Lab assay of single mutants.
Amino acid sequence: NQASVVANTLIPINTALTLVMMRSEVVTPVGIPAEDIPRLVSMTVNRAVPLGTTLMPDMVKGYA
């Protein structure tokens, strides 16, 4: 099973992502692959992402 990116904290809308905000976890449904974490750093989220939420491609500006 592939690990996905999961919010390690509440990420407010329009926040630039940092490494400490994200962790990898095997979850269903599958979200952004964990190997993309380095690429996500400094990208911003377009909605509030609660703790434990899987990051989906449409949640990160410029990812999809």
Score class of each variant (00 low, 15 high):
38 P>I: 10
61 K>R: 15
54 T>C: 03
5 V>W: 02
8 N>I: 06
29 P>I: 05
58 D>Q: 13
32 I>H: 00
33 P>E: 04
52 G>R: 04
48 A>C: 06
55 L>G: 01
62 G>W: 05
33 P>W: 14
48 A>D: 13
2 Q>V: 13
62 G>F: 09
22 M>K: 00
3 A>V: 09
32 I>L: 09
8 N>H: 08
12 P>K: 11
23 R>G: 09
60 V>W: 02
48 A>V: 11
20 V>K: 12
49 V>M: 05
43 M>Q: 08
9 T>Q: 10
56 M>N: 06
39 R>C: 04
19 L>N: 07
63 Y>Q: 04
52 G>W: 04
18 T>A: 08
59 M>D: 13
29 P>K: 05
35 E>V: 13
31 G>A: 03
54 T>G: 03
52 G>Q: 04
6 V>S: 02
46 N>I: 12
62 G>R: 06
57 P>M: 06
30 V>A: 15
16 A>M: 12
27 V>N: 03
1 N>G: 15
2 Q>P: 15
9 T>P: 01
15 T>W: 06
59 M>P: 02
24 S>W: 09
46 N>T: 15
46 N>A: 10
25 E>M: 12
2 Q>E: 14
25 E>K: 09
2 Q>N: 10
47 R>G: 05
47 R>N: 06
19 L>D: 08
42 S>R: 09
18 T>R: 12
27 V>H: 03
15 T>F: 08
55 L>Q: 02
21 M>P: 01
5 V>A: 08
5 V>N: 01
40 L>H: 00
61 K>P: 15
18 T>M: 08
49 V>L: 10
55 L>T: 02
42 S>D: 09
53 T>E: 14
50 P>S: 07
6 V>T: 08
40 L>V: 05
2 Q>D: 07
33 P>L: 11
57 P>E: 07
55 L>A: 01
53 T>Q: 15
41 V>M: 09
34 A>C: 04
5 V>E: 01
1 N>L: 15
52 G>N: 15
27 V>D: 02
56 M>E: 08
29 P>Q: 06
52 G>M: 05
50 P>D: 14
54 T>H: 03
37 I>W: 03
53 T>P: 00
4 S>F: 02
62 G>A: 10
37 I>V: 06
23 R>E: 04
12 P>C: 04
20 V>L: 14
31 G>P: 01
20 V>G: 14
20 V>Q: 15
64 A>S: 11
18 T>P: 00
40 L>M: 08
16 A>C: 04
17 L>A: 00
44 T>R: 10
39 R>Y: 15
20 V>D: 14
36 D>G: 07
20 V>H: 06
4 S>E: 01
64 A>P: 15
3 A>W: 07
51 L>I: 11
42 S>K: 08
56 M>S: 15
13 I>A: 11
64 A>N: 10
25 E>T: 07
58 D>I: 09
17 L>S: 00
42 S>A: 13
15 T>E: 10
41 V>T: 06
9 T>I: 08
37 I>P: 00
44 T>A: 07
